[in-house]
């Protein structure tokens, strides 16, 4: 389980020249829609869309009741049971479909909560500065350094049979620090920009400056932080279910793995019991990570995979575009000729 370290997040002030150039104000709006044109982001969004769809319709389209036992005990995948069955004859495909809702709800609720907290704390700290900044920064650094997952595990285990909502709240309240830190850094640099200084000099209200001058330019970072938190929240929820802390009465993919592990699915060779849930998690994580790559590349275009790095020149050679050695497409042969006539179609003599 990892958080994908995005380049935006890697960049913190104090590393001077490496501070990310964020989109120029004003241009931000026009470019917002071009983000979707990024292939990675588009792929991620489509997959995420499919997951959201299943989160909504999953419980209705599931062929069986995920709790219903049947005589088909530990069946391998078949036409009747696409992903096979459990030791009680429950249909794993239905469990996955029904579980999608819990996973998505917890991921999104925790993501929204953490994002709101990180904006409140990060932007306030960065904008107001002074003692408030010191205090809020120290608070977010503390939350950043304390290992979040063990803390979540302990807090959740105290509450008997924690519900999805509670799990989402606990995760949200413990995972805002990363976003807050990045937002604070970026707000700090935005605050010194001319247009913000100008707005302040003309006596604009603080909340208006934050809302209309600062926040629009933090959109990409906020989005990236949100996606990162959703990844973390989904992983944490599944982990909690897997080790049997959160409520086992409702289905999510971690619950499936919990039963698979508890019933020695591995030893019995019932690979279908844990493979689909794991792949579902990995695919969701990949989709979210792809969205984040898209945001990263959108914010700092240098990161885009170099489109064409090999070029075929007119005389059939292949040259490579790279830093430090500019390719020459058509060098004029014959070195020491005295001012030879070169064709120049657009120059009139």
């Amino acid at each position: 389980m990892t958080i994908s370290p995005s380049s935006i997040e890697q960049v913190i002030p104090g590393q001077g020249a490496m501070a990310q150039p964020s989109a120029a104000p004003g241009r931000a709006k026009r470019r917002q829609f071009r983000f979707i044109a990024n292939a990675k982001a588009a792929t991620g969004l489509v997959i995420l869309g499919i997951y959201c769809l299943f989160a909504v319709i999953g419980p209705w389209v599931a062929p069986y009741n995920p709790d219903a036992r049947s005589g088909d005990v530990l069946q391998a995948p078949s036409l009747r049971h696409w992903f096979g069955t459990t030791h009680l004859g429950q249909d794993i495909f239905s469990q996955i479909l029904v579980g999608a809702r819990s996973v998505m709800v917890v991921g999104l609720v925790a993501g929204v909560l953490a994002t709101v907290l990180s904006i409140l704390i990060g932007v306030t700290a960065g904008y107001i500065g002074g003692a408030a900044d010191e205090g809020l920064s120290a608070l977010s650094n503390v939350f950043l350094v304390i290992p979040a997952l063990p803390l979540i595990i302990i807090v959740t285990s105290i509450v008997e049979q924690a519900s999805d909502t509670l799990v989402a709240l606990i995760i949200g309240c413990t995972s805002w620090a990363w976003g807050a830190r990045v937002l604070r850094a970026q707000t700090l640099s935005l605050r010194r920009r001319d247009y913000v200084e100008a707005a302040r000099a003309t006596g604009e209200r603080t909340w208006r400056i934050i809302l209309f001058e600062i926040l629009p330019n933090l959109t990409a970072i906020i989005a990236s932080g949100f996606v990162g938190t959703v990844i973390f929240a989904v992983m944490s929820e599944i982990t909690l279910a897997f080790i049997g802390i959160s409520s086992i009465s409702s289905w999510n993919w971690g619950t499936i793995l919990f039963w698979a592990q508890g019933q020695q699915a591995l030893a019995q060779g019932a690979w279908w019991w844990f493979v689909p849930a794991g792949l579902a998690i990995a695919l969701l994580g990949t989709a979210l990570a792809l969205i984040n790559f898209g945001i990263d590349e959108f914010v700092s275009p240098r990161l885009r995979s170099a489109g064409r790095t090999r070029i075929r020149t007119a005389d059939g050679r292949t040259v490579r575009m790279r830093v430090g050695f500019t390719p020459v497409l058509a060098p004029t042969p014959s070195v020491p000729t005295p001012r030879a006539a070169t064709t120049r179609e657009d120059v009139v003599r």
Partner: peptide, 9 residues
């Protein structure tokens, strides 16, 4: 640096 290229001369 890319995408600069020398196209002739």
């Amino acid at each position: 640096p890319p995408p600069g290229v020398v196209s002739g001369g």
